[in-house]
Nucleic acid binder design. Structure first.
Lengths: 347, 347
DNA sequence: TTGAAAGCGCTAACAG
DNA sequence: CTGTTAGCGCTTTCAA
């Protein structure tokens, strides 16, 4: 049985061991200016020998904590895992450690979580699809470097990385029209707040859907079920759409989980996919790619979004005065087996 | 445009505003003994008026950070989301904040992440299905209160919450035997390390499978494909099993993702599920419940596991001398549409 | 280039 | 019950 280490190694231990000042050790730790190569080597040697690791809590009191906080609204949405991979990849070589704040549904929980991250002196924040009021986001960003992912802007205080959701919606509608569909319906996440209506991805997708339909001269075919971005929302939305007198031949769901619900509702209604009805999703999550489901979906390249977010965040931590950037990524369409042309009886 | 707050409110500001000492404020903050009701009220009032929030970094230097770190190996495994829900639920009323350390595959990444959490002075750690050497886990637990979830023990330094994987395997085998199956195969996650062979859930499930088969007098039917707990592992494992001369009529996959791979392989082989072959998984993840898949699976009640882990952790933070506990939860079987009796041609 | 010394915001002894 | 004081481990002036 090993003896429990009675006390952690501190910078003082290292300084004594290397026979230098704690200042010197601190400089080496931060790769700061003002330490000779010889001293650097000595200090590094001692650090390795003693197995010293700096205390982030103590560092945070004066300088940085080398911690990046990521808030994500829903652990069950696999798309967010891609974003996270992008972030951790990008931060791989650096001293930054990523910590996640889990499951914050609603503005209140979101605020609590953001505060918790600020209280823990995190050096920077990545907020994924936040729902908070814009003024709130701005005041957060004024306090700590922040990048917002998946919510459109612009903002003068935080950087933004988002998918071009309007373009994504066009991809789907174009694809379906190309297959001969005209009665193309959409399931959206219900939204009333005017700012969110402009900034949230779900609203942009719905707008893109409307614009795309209009661009094809199909404004009279526009048909929207307004529910939520959940599997149940998709189920209920599709049920509603399928019950209408002029039943759609294709459904564009605003998210993959929504599409799954729509698939369930279709099966329940005795409709075969894609023979009787085509279904497309958004996010190209692992679920969409899964063989037996094989859902046509819009790919957002979450990895790339995450990598961009991390890059921007580190830049802003380095230079808080830099002007904010808005990165908009182009989505692509991944056609799989849930969309096809109309069977003759439907035409 | 609001003015950016030039400096954060500190305990000193609160003390001055309430006309008391910082000690008093600190006591109120921690609900510590030695403050009159009148003083408590005054301080609370000032805290609210000034919008004061304590700095976790500073607190950590002397006392607690009120932060619980959760390490989970794979964000894409939805079962872990349930565990997390259980943890956050249990910690809901307390001052503790949960932070996650993401995606650590392999012993090295795991060590790095654990160190990062310790360096950030977290008050306690929940390690979910860690793969590190036992000595490593013990030395971590000696440094900071730790609960290990999903890996069997026992240990004298950390608490354990685990599912009774042997019982779970029995549930599956009993169910399949009850349906008339005899040639029941298993897909396991390959494991060689002797300690892990005893402690990891995957190994326990494989052992449970063997024991259950023997209990039914079917030891000569034992048939195991040794791959990994991934969808691809399931696909390859099932392919291997289905290619054998004496093809199984049922496959017990060690995890839901593995079962999905097995479903793909079965479809590819032209076998209908459950007509030609039954498939059962483990974890009862959201995927299993999803209508079109509807996988028979063992339910571990991740929420309950998480809640137990959080409870034990807080207990241990409060009393580090308490003897360690091992909580073993009984799984249940959720029968869905991927398992059924043999068709007459197979009997 | 180097190091002494003064905090960062909080908690915990200890005195009153 | 209340306040004074000495740090926690690190960074950062500022002199040498």
């Amino acid at each position: 049985m090993e003896k429990p280490s009675p006390r952690r190694i501190t910078i003082v231990d290292v300084a004594r061991h290397a026979q230098v000042s704690t200042t010197a050790v601190s400089k080496v730790l931060r790769n700061a200016y003002g330490a000779s190569p010889g001293m650097r080597a000595k200090v590094r040697q001692s650090i390795a020998e003693l197995g010293y690791r700096p205390s982030a809590a103590a560092r945070g009191l004066r300088g940085q904590t080398y911690t990046i906080g990521v808030m994500l609204p829903d652990l069950r949405n696999l798309f967010f895992a891609d974003i996270l991979d992008g972030i951790t990849d990008q931060l791989g070589g650096t001293d930054y450690q990523v910590l996640l704040a889990p499951g914050c549904n609603g503005e209140k929980a979101e605020s609590r979580v953001i505060e918790a991250m600020i209280d823990r002196s995190m050096d920077g924040l990545v907020l994924i699809a936040p729902v908070s009021a814009k003024s709130r986001l701005n005041s957060v960003a004024r306090e700590v470097p922040t990048v917002v992912v998946g919510r459109h802007g612009p903002s003068a205080t935080y950087d933004i990385v988002a998918d071009d959701d309007v373009a994504g919606a066009f991809l789907v509608v174009d694809h379906l029209v190309g297959l001969g569909h005209r009665r193309i319906a959409h399931i959206e996440h219900h939204e009333t707040d005017p700012v969110r209506l402009r900034e949230m991805p779900n609203a942009q997708r719905a707008q893109g859907y409307r614009d795309a339909m209009a661009a094809h001269g199909l404004e009279d075919q526009i048909d929207i079920a307004s529910t939520t971005y959940t599997q149940e929302g998709g189920y209920l939305g599709a049920k509603e759409l399928l019950a209408r007198p002029n039943r759609p031949t294709a459904i564009f769901a605003g998210a993959d989980v929504v599409a799954l619900g729509a698939l369930e509702a279709s099966a329940e209604a005795g409709l075969s996919v894609p023979g009787d009805i085509s279904v497309a999703g958004y996010d190209n999550s692992a679920l969409a790619a899964f063989g037996p489901i094989s859902l046509t979906s819009v790919d957002q390249d979450g990895r790339e979004m995450g990598a961009n977010a991390a890059r921007l965040l580190v830049e802003r931590i380095t230079d808080r005065e830099r002007r904010t950037a808005q990165v908009k990524l182009s989505p692509t369409l991944v056609v799989r087996r849930t969309t096809s042309g109309l069977s003759s009886s439907e035409q």
